[in-house]
Simulated scan of single mutants.
Amino acid sequence: MNHFVILSGCSGGGKSTLLSELHQRGYAVVEEPGRRIVQEETRIGGQALPWIDMTAFLRRAIDMALDDHANTRHSSQWTFFDRGLLMRRRHLKN
């Protein structure tokens, strides 16, 4: 069973502050993909920025969110995400 919590809300609403506090208290946290992409693309002089190439930015954000989920799905501890994708669990019948 996954113990995932997605924090959502407006910019400046306190999501990052709450995530920081949860991290300090020992919880697993995953920062928002968009923020990480902007930091990385700015550092390397990349083009996958929403004000330069929105399509590339969105593709990277989706890929990063899927990777975040894949990298945490086997964790038994609570994991808090700063935004994220909602994914539907599929059950296969035998």
Rank of each mutant, 00 (worst) to 15 (best):
L7A: 04
L7R: 00
L7Y: 01
S8T: 15
S8C: 11
S8Y: 01
S8N: 08
G9D: 10
G9R: 05
C10E: 14
S11H: 00
S11A: 08
S11W: 00
G12Y: 02
G12D: 02
G12M: 03
G12Q: 03
G13C: 15
G13N: 08
G14V: 10
G14E: 11
G14N: 06
K15C: 11
K15G: 10
S16Q: 04
T17M: 07
T17G: 14
L18A: 14
L18W: 08
L19G: 03
L19Y: 01
E21Q: 14
E21P: 00
E21A: 13
E21G: 03
L22I: 10
L22D: 10
H23C: 09
H23G: 07
H23R: 14
H23K: 15
H23M: 08
Q24F: 07
Q24E: 15
Q24K: 14
Q24G: 07
Q24Y: 06
R25V: 06
G26M: 13
G26W: 07
G26L: 13
Y27D: 05
Y27G: 05
Y27P: 04
Y27N: 11
A28W: 05
A28R: 09
A28D: 12
V29R: 01
V29L: 09
V29M: 09
V30N: 03
V30Y: 00
V30R: 07
V30Q: 07
V30W: 00
V30M: 09
E31A: 05
E31L: 05
E32Q: 03
E32G: 03
E32I: 05
E32R: 01
E32Y: 02
P33V: 15
P33F: 15
P33K: 12
G34H: 03
G34K: 04
G34Q: 08
R35G: 07
R35P: 06
R35D: 11
R36N: 09
R36T: 13
R36G: 03
I37A: 01
I37Y: 00
I37Q: 00
I37E: 02
I37F: 00
I37G: 02
I37L: 03
I37D: 01
V38C: 14
V38S: 09
Q39V: 12
Q39A: 14
Q39Y: 04
Q39H: 07
E40Q: 14
E40H: 13
E40T: 10
E40P: 01
E40F: 08
E40N: 09
E40W: 06
E41H: 02
E41D: 06
E41Y: 02
E41S: 03
E41L: 08
E41F: 03
T42M: 14
T42W: 04
T42K: 12
T42N: 12
T42V: 15
R43K: 04
R43S: 02
R43D: 04
R43G: 00
I44H: 05
I44T: 14
I44C: 10
G45H: 06
G45I: 10
G45Q: 09
G45S: 09
G45A: 09
